[in-house]
Design a protein around this nucleic acid. Structure first.
Lengths: 150, 150
DNA sequence: TATTATTTGTTGATATATCAACTATATTTG
DNA sequence: CAAATATAGTTGATATATCAACAAATAATA
């Protein structure tokens, strides 16, 4: 189609890039494990790396809502990939641990995760990536700034 | 928090940027119109610019599923911002038109849309934007390529 | 210590994303 | 023209995003 972009800006392209990337990720995940979403995989990765974090902290880390975290974790527990136990110090919190099956699933995903990243960033120079990251950070800062006038 | 990013790559930052930008957009939309989502606003904009497009074509244009389009359009019709009439040539399709109220809502959004874009991209040089866009296009192309090996 | 305020996580409601199945209509083809 | 195929859009199921209201537990304070 030869229709110009709706917003005429790169932000439209940004949206497209994320969607295309997530689609690639899901396709590659589907090849190695059954019925696991990109977001569920992400939470498995984060929980493995940072087992001491609370749900709230994980939510912040991956830019998700705590409500979303509750539901994703519930699904992971249902699938037998995660256990949710009492927290010793703070009874409001839970202790989250990957089950052996969760560890196994994660192990199967390791190569996929790398593949996804390498595929998406193929042919980009280190310098280009640094510049790209810098621009993204500027955009994030711009959008995070509290609005100038109420 | 001093925790490194989960994926160690810019793709994580990309996700963060989109989320932060969408949040900004929603906040600014909330200031001028009542109960309208970012996606609904986007569809209004696109329909106004391209009134002849089918739902399918609009879906492709904004990288959404046709099922999502059906539902978003339904909500816009419910809100009285859009009419859905018979298509003269092809009875599978619909003719979508903004109502006067839809036009009015869109007019109220015009400044907001510009504000969102300007806010997000403030302080970025033309050259930086061109480079940024180029990198995004490369990532999209990388992710769109059918996987090398099955 | 009793009260108040804050924090952690859950739940409900609504919107969107994705996939698959489905209907109705058009188009192609034999 | 009839049958097969393709296309447009809808609907159902499930997952996630967001917001608000909420319960339970903890922390702060008077």
């Amino acid at each position: 189609m030869t229709i110009d972009t709706p917003t005429q800006t790169v932000l439209y392209t940004l949206e497209q890039a994320i969607k295309t990337y997530r689609r690639l990720c899901q396709q590659n995940i589907d090849r190695v494990v059954d019925k696991l979403t990109v977001d569920q995989a992400l939470i498995l990765i984060v929980l493995d790396k940072h087992p001491a974090l609370s749900q709230q902290q994980i939510a912040e880390l991956v830019f998700k809502d705590k409500a979303s975290l509750t539901r994703i974790i519930e699904l992971l527990v249902q699938k037998g990939l995660l256990t949710r136990g009492m927290h010793s110090a703070d009874r409001r919190k839970f202790e989250l641990h990957l089950t052996p099956q969760g560890q196994h699933t994660l192990a199967q995903l390791t190569d996929t995760i790398l593949l996804n990243q390498r595929t998406a960033l193929a042919g980009l120079s280190e310098e280009e990536l640094v510049q790209f990251h810098s621009t993204l950070q500027k955009i994030i800062a711009n959008c995070s700034t509290p609005a100038p006038c109420a």
